[in-house]
Amino acid sequence: MAVSFWQKVMDIDRRWIYLVIGIVTFVPILWYIGMPVKVTPEVKAVFDKIESLPPGSIVMVPMEFDPATAAELEPMAKAVVRHCFARNLKVMTTAFMIDGVVLVERDLALVAAEYGKEYGKDYVYLGYKPYMQIVLLNMGENFRKPFPRDYYGKKLDDLPMMQGVNNYSNISCIVGINATSGADYWINYASGRYGAQLALGVTAVMATDYYAFLQSGQIFGLMGGLKGAAEYEKLIGRPKDVANRSMDAVSVAHVFIILFIVIGNIAFFATGRQKKV
């Protein structure tokens, strides 16, 4: 019996789909189209908060990502830090994902060099400590308890920026860039226990979970995945940075995935919903 077209579609080797997705993702990276990126209120809220701070205020930007999630969160972290430095705000950073400790150090140094910022005076990198929830609670009392020294081994009291900076009450706001359930800890301890002003930048997978906290007012802003990063880049006037350039590829890949889902469903119903082994 001749095999129907839809049966052939059902039997297609999944590697062809991988190949198509690979090609349609790769091509727009090479040829930049510049598809429009609409700024959402939850990302604008983060921008507005940083914009409203007087120069010299300290913004804490904890960066919890590793090489596996850097593609989404690194552009976001860089955009937020660029915004802070452009506004002459001071930046304090931690890295509670152990695989990302060096990535964060590199990114901070790179952006600081762009704006001529000096370590210890304009920004401080505290580095990594294990058992995040205990560390966050301790930071609410004094940053020096969990971090007697910064990432480079310098005592916090020896850093000019840290003079008189003891706990969350000395920080204007926290913009946590987070790829883990550590975001829950920031909500629970920094915001819940110590009332710190908190916004989150999370991977796209996590984003839907955190809209509930935005609605409840536990966070004042939310950036989700590469789209959130692209929106922030646009807000700070860098519409050709990596996240925006990548949004073309995201859009084209999404169109093809939707097409595949539609075709797959048609094939599924056309072949009489036979159970495949």
Binding site: I21, G22, T25, I29, A68, T69, A70, A71, E72, T203, A204, V205, G225, L226, K227, S246, A249, V250, A253, H254, I257
Partner: peptide, 9 residues
């Protein structure tokens, strides 16, 4: 979107 973003990375 997240997975595509990682591929783009």
């Amino acid at each position: 979107m997240s997975r595509i973003s990682l591929l783009i990375g």
